[in-house]
Design a protein around this nucleic acid. Structure first.
Length: 557
RNA sequence: AGCGGGGUAGCUCAGUUGGUUAGAGCACAGGAUUCAUAACCCUGAGGUCACGGGUUCAAAUCCCGUCCCCGCUACCA
């Protein structure tokens, strides 16, 4: 049986997570995982913090904290937000604390070296003697050699738009201390991407079925895939293994080399904690496993080209990604989520104000699946009131309250003579409805939630046509059959809703008087003339405590 | 600058390999109803599918050009 290994991009432990991240890589993964599980599939959902790299060392120094203390803080902060949103990984770790990470990463280095895919080469770089570090492009400023602007960055001149070669910049200065850096020659190891591409990866990419927005992107990447430096001169990170360092010290592996390996080391850590340390191989080196990487589009090169190259290049039989459903960008009204530009907001505070499950649903309804999308607080309120409260919430409310009042809080029985007619009418009302599960598995999460809401609308239409408030006065048995049918349908809705709003679904499940976890209830097919055996025999069951599933939100101001 | 994505109803977006009067939800208007969270149901209005050319019996869909928005461009993550 197919196993599903699902990963979400490792969040960088350098600041809080924002809704752009959530919508890009985490919520879709969580929906997919919950859906698969409910369908009875075996799933492992892996994530953790990405904790190395220059940006973190600088952030920590600014915060006057130790590197490990700094990343621990953000690792915890980010996890807390995931918890609030109900994004539930099977394992959560961090690249600087996972006990398997250093060893696994160094093993990759050795294996790639053994296979001849690493190249050592000397390059010139700018070095700041005061900060004692080599400066990446973004940490250098200077005078543009093209237009003379004094505020050119190491990568681009904001005045003339020229693409800057850092070493040619006039009067370069360190962006951190303002001092002049000097040129130094340093050795680095490069990953031989061209060779990996030619031997395997280009063909693999060609043959693979990618999401359309990913496909166009990686074709361009393939054309020129340069050798890529995978080491850095700094202390914070996974050291180059001593036995391969050729006497050169002070090198760590580039954060982008070690981060994706985190998926594997976190799996090893998880497996050991399960008491079956070798199980990680089932997930990473077994052809029956489907590996799915959920990422934002900025991560496409790494997950579709670089990491697969690394996996294959080790010569071990690592599986390559089965799907990379990369999302486009999610932004706030008017621009991207950006802490520095003040266009974000305190997500933790917001989640205290707005039910996180409503936020999940709204995010799902607006996910940037095919194009960039926008988050608007006002739209969330409208969405909650019209789609969740009035449609789905109100459906449960009108049916269950009616039963509470008129049938003593007990789901009425279905009279056998009514079944055929009621089914016929119901299937008519739901004729255009699609199976939310089908869209979910195809990574069409927006549509999947739309399917669920359409299925709720179908029930509202059905009730409108049945008019049990009228039939109850003339033919209480018929009214009972009608309400029974509605309860059966709501029991399906609770299960379809479960991936999107697990808590709400559970609440609805309990209102129907059901026992146990709604997510254990399986994934029901959409009832139709072809699938007429859809009822589970709820007649006679006592309702649970009723409450308002999705309260309306008063518009702010 | 190069590469990629986008520009479709007031808003958020669907539109599969080109094929009848371009769709959905929300918002809006009218009607019906009263079980329900002023909810539900029915009906309606609405768009020269960014702009200009071209290919075709037929183009939102393919080709060329122009204009806007966004992302990436890899030793930032």
């Amino acid at each position: 049986m197919t196993r599903h290994l699902v990963t979400s991009a490792l969040p960088y432990a350098n600041g809080p997570i924002h809704l752009g991240h959530v919508a890009g890589a985490y919520l879709p993964a969580d929906l997919y995982v919950r859906g698969l599980r409910q369908m009875g599939e075996e799933v492992l959902f892996v994530c953790g913090a990405d904790e190395h790299g220059v940006a973190i060392t600088i952030g920590a120094e600014k915060a006057k904290q130790g590197y490990d203390e700094y990343v621990e803080h953000w690792r915890g902060d980010i996890k807390k937000t995931f918890d609030s949103l109900g994004i539930a990984f099977d394992t959560w770790s961090g690249t600087s604390v996972c006990p398997d990470h250093e060893e696994t990463t160094q093993e990759f280095f050795r294996l790639l070296d053994d296979q001849g895919y690493l190249i050592r080469r000397e390059i010139e770089q700018l070095y700041c003697t005061k900060d004692e570090m080599y400066l990446a492009d973004r940490y250098v400023e200077g005078t543009c050699y093209n237009c003379g602007a004094e505020n050119a960055r190491g990568d681009e001149c904001p005045d003339c738009g020229t693409w800057i070669e850092t070493l040619r910049l006039k009067e370069p200065r360190c962006k951190l201390c303002g001092g002049p850096p000097e040129r130094r020659t340093t050795s680095h190891w490069f990953l031989d991407l061209p060779a990996l591409r030619d031997k395997k990866i280009a063909k693999w990419i060609e043959d693979h079925d990618w999401k359309s927005n990913v496909s166009a992107f990686i074709k361009g990447l393939l054309k020129d895939a340069p050798e890529r430096a995978i080491t850095r001169d700094m202390k914070w990170g996974v050291p180059v293994p001593e036995d391969r360092a050729e006497g050169i010290s002070g090198k760590v592996l580039y954060v982008w080399f070690d981060a994706p390996i985190g998926y594997i080391s976190f799996t090893k850590e998880w497996a050991r904690k399960q008491g079956r340390p070798d199980d990680w191989k089932l997930w990473w080196q077994n052809d029956e496993t489907h590996l799915t990487h959920f990422i934002g589009k900025d991560n496409i090169p790494f997950h579709c080209l670089v990491f697969p190259s690394m996996l294959w290049g080790t010569g071990q039989n690592y599986i390559l990604p089965h799907a990379v459903p990369a999302n486009e960008f999610y932004s706030m009204a008017g621009g991207k989520f950006s802490t520095s530009e003040g266009r974000t907001f305190d997500l933790e505070e917001y989640l205290k104000e707005i039910d996180p499950e409503v936020v999940r649903c709204y995010l799902t309804a607006t996910l940037p699946e095919t194009a960039d999308a926008e988050f608007k607080k006002e739209d969330l309120v409208t969405f909650n009131n019209s789609s969740l409260a009035s449609n789905l919430g109100n459906l449960g409310s009108r049916v269950l309250k009616f039963i509470a009042k008129n049938f003593d809080s007990q789901i009425p029985e279905l009279a056998p003579e009514h079944e055929a007619d009621l089914d016929k009418l119901l299937f008519e009302c739901s004729a255009s409805c699609e199976d939310p599960g089908k869209d979910l598995l195809a990574f069409r999460f927006r549509r999947s939630l739309e399917d669920v809401l359409a299925l709720a609308t179908a029930a509202n239409v059905f009730m409108q046509r049945c008019e049990p408030w009228k039939t109850n006065k003339t033919d209480p048995v018929l009214a009972g059959s009608q309400l029974n049918t509605l309860c059966e349908w709501i029991a399906l809705l609770a299960r379809w809703l479960a991936p999107f709003a697990p808590g709400k679904a559970q609440e609805l499940w309990q209102q129907l008087g059901a026992e146990g976890e709604v997510s254990q209830g399986g994934w029901p097919k959409v009832p139709s003339a072809e699938n007429p055996q859809w009822r589970s025999g709820l007649g006679g069951r006592a309702l649970g405590e009723l409450g308002t599933l999705f309260p309306r939100i008063d518009a702010p101001e």
